[in-house]
Design a protein around this nucleic acid. Structure first.
Lengths: 301, 301
DNA sequence: AAAATAGTGTCTGTCAGACAGTATATC
DNA sequence: GATATACTGTCTGACAGACACTATTTT
C-alpha cells in the first residue's frame, strides 16, 4: 500500500477510543423482487395466467411497528461489509445465494426509526422465480410475497422565478390475496431544478401497514429497477427462470416499466440477448411459444 | 403516517437502549471536482491555456495517515442526514453552497480505517470554477487542488468455464505543481460476469500519499462522473462558469471522458442545451469564440 | 500572410417507434 | 372454424460517427 504506520501512529491508534464519538446503528434493508404466476383455477383454459411482480415482506413480531410489514434485512456486524450483510440476510431468509444484488442508497434521515439514530443501506435484489425457498414462519417470523402495484396519481409543475419544480405523487399498493392484506402508501417525489441539475426528494404522505419509512424505500427500489430496465434491458433477466418465452419476458418488462410495449420492437431489441431452444410450451389452448434462454455472449461488455 | 404507537410500544421504546449493539462510526468523504486553467507565463501568446480537471485534497495534520492527503469530509452528527453532513462540510471547507452533490456509494469494507469500524458514504461534488473560496490553511489544515489524471494501464479477459472476468488496471495520478507533489495509485477493477449480470470489485494495488482507501474512492468518483457524462451531457455544466465557449465545454468533456471528441458532433449535441450570448472572447491571438450560457429550458425533464 | 482557433454542411449507418400483416396450436 | 396467442416485414424519422470544408481574429 506504500504506507507504513510510524511508531507514534501505532501508539496513537492503541489509545484511540472510537466510542468517544456519537455513532449510528447500521442496517440493510432489501427490496427483493420476483415474478410469480397468479393462481386462479376459474380462469378460461385458453387464457394465459397473468404474471405478477412480487415483493417479499416480513411481518414484524415485535416492537416497534409490531404487526406492520417491513422489508427483510438486519443489522450490520463488525467485520463484514454491507454487501456481506445483505447477502447473508438474503441467504437466511430465502435460501437464495445467486441473486442480483445492488445497493441504491443510504437512508439516513433523522427520525426515520423511533429507536434512535439508525441509518440503513437499501438494496435491490432480483431473484429467479424458481430459486427461492422461504424460511419457515414462526411467531416472530412471517415472510410473504406481495404483488406490487405503482401508479402516478398526480403530477404538478411549478415555476417560481428561476426555480422550477416537478412533483409526482405515487400510489404504492402491495397486495397479498391469500392473507387478504393490502398495504397502501402515497409518496411525493419532488424534483427541484436549480440551474440545470435536479435535486430529488421524497416525502411519505400516508403509509398504511408499512413499518418505518419502508414505503419510500420500496418506491425508490422500484424506480431504480425501472430506470435500469429503461437503460439496459438485461437486468430483467434476473427475474426470469432458465428458459422463458419472449412473451413472458415482454410481460415482465411491461410490469416493471408500467406501460405496454410494441411486440416487434421488443423482440428486435431482445434478439441479441437470447438464444432459441428446441423446446416450446404445449397444451396452452393456442399457438405455443418457443422457449428461449439467455445469450451469455451478449453480456460481456 | 397512518401509524400511531401503542402505549406498550411507547414503553418499549422508552426502555430501548440502542447502545447494546455494535455500531460503526459514519463519515462522509467528498470528491470535489473543479476546472482550473493552467498558469504558465511562458506559453506562446497565441495558444490557449489548457484547462485542468482538479480535485480538492486535504493534508492530514494528525494520525492516522499523518501528512498523507485525504478527501474532505467528516463525521456525521446525530440529527442530520448524510446529505446534510456533506453540504455542511462542503460549505465549511470551500464556502460553496450551490454545488452539484450526489452520493455514489457506501464504503464499508472491514479494515478500511485503522481506527476501527468506520463506514463512509462517498459523494461526488462538482463546483463552479469561480465559486469556491478555500478555507485558510493552518497547521492542521491544508487544502489544495490537484490535477487529476487517470489512465488504463492493463486490460485482461479471462474465461474459465461459465465465468468470464474482465480486469482493468487504472493508474491514478494527482499532481500539484506548486507543492511539487504527486500522488499515485494503482487500482484494479474486476468485473465478474455471472450468468448475465456483472459484479464489480475494486482492489488498491498501490497507493502513494493517499490516506485510507481514498485512492479507490477517487477512482470510483471519477468513473461515476465519466458514466454520467456519457449518458447525459448535462452534468458537466456544473463544472462551468456562467458563460463559456463551446470549445471550453468540449475540452471539459474530453478531460472527463479521457478521449477526443469530434467537434461538429459535439456542438450538435450541445446545441439544445446552450444559448448564444452577445459576447465573445477577445485578444486571444486568433478568431475569438462566442460565449454561451446554459439553456434552462433544456433541463426540465 | 501565417498561425491558431472557431464554426458549418452533409453523408452514412444504426436503431427505435409505428403499424400492417401472417402463422399455428387447442378445442 | 373460432379463439388466443405467436411471430415477421418494412416504413419512418431521429440521431451519432466521420470527414471535408469555410470563417475570423491577431500579430
Amino acid at each position: 500500500m506504500g504506507y507504513t504506520a510510524s511508531p507514534e501512529e501505532l501508539e496513537f491508534l492503541k489509545n484511540y477510543d472510537i466510542r468517544q464519538y456519537d455513532r449510528p446503528s447500521l442496517t440493510v434493508d432489501i427490496a427483493m423482487f420476483a415474478i410469480r404466476a397468479e393462481e386462479d383455477p376459474e380462469r378460461d383454459y385458453r387464457k394465459d395466467p397473468p404474471l405478477e411482480l412480487s415483493l417479499l415482506m416480513i411481518r414484524r413480531g415485535s416492537f416497534p411497528y409490531k404487526d406492520c410489514w417491513a422489508l427483510p434485512g438486519g443489522f450490520a456486524k463488525p467485520g463484514e461489509s454491507t454487501a456481506d450483510t445483505a447477502r447473508r440476510e438474503l441467504q437466511e431468509e430465502t435460501s437464495v445465494d445467486n441473486a442480483y444484488l445492488r445497493s441504491f442508497d443510504l437512508f439516513s434521515r433523522a427520525g426515520r426509526d423511533p429507536r434512535g439514530w439508525i441509518v440503513s443501506e437499501a438494496f435491490l435484489a432480483l431473484v429467479d422465480a424458481k430459486d427461492y425457498r422461504l424460511r419457515a414462519g414462526t411467531d416472530a417470523w412471517d415472510a410473504r410475497w406481495f404483488r406490487i402495484g405503482l401508479t402516478v396519481t398526480d403530477t404538478k409543475k411549478e415555476i417560481s422565478g428561476e426555480q422550477i419544480s416537478l412533483t409526482n405523487e405515487y400510489a404504492l399498493t402491495l397486495t397479498n390475496t391469500a392473507l387478504d392484506t393490502v398495504l397502501t402508501a402515497r409518496v411525493r417525489e419532488k424534483k427541484l431544478f436549480d440551474r440545470h441539475h435536479e435535486a430529488v426528494s421524497y416525502e411519505i404522505l400516508s403509509s398504511e401497514g408499512f413499518a418505518f419509512d419502508h414505503a419510500e424505500i420500496i418506491l425508490r427500489a422500484f424506480l431504480t429497477l425501472r430506470r435500469q430496465t429503461e437503460q439496459e434491458g438485461r437486468i430483467a433477466f434476473d427475474l426470469m427462470p432458465e428458459t422463458f418465452t419472449l412473451n413472458m419476458l415482454q410481460e415482465v418488462h411491461e410490469m416493471i416499466l408500467g406501460r405496454k410495449l410494441l411486440t416487434p420492437n421488443f423482440r428486435r431489441k431482445m434478439a441479441p440477448m437470447v438464444i432459441e431452444t428446441e423446446e416450446s410450451l404445449s397444451g396452452v389452448g393456442h399457438r405455443p411459444a418457443k422457449l428461449y434462454r439467455r445469450n451469455p455472449e451478449a453480456f460481456y461488455v
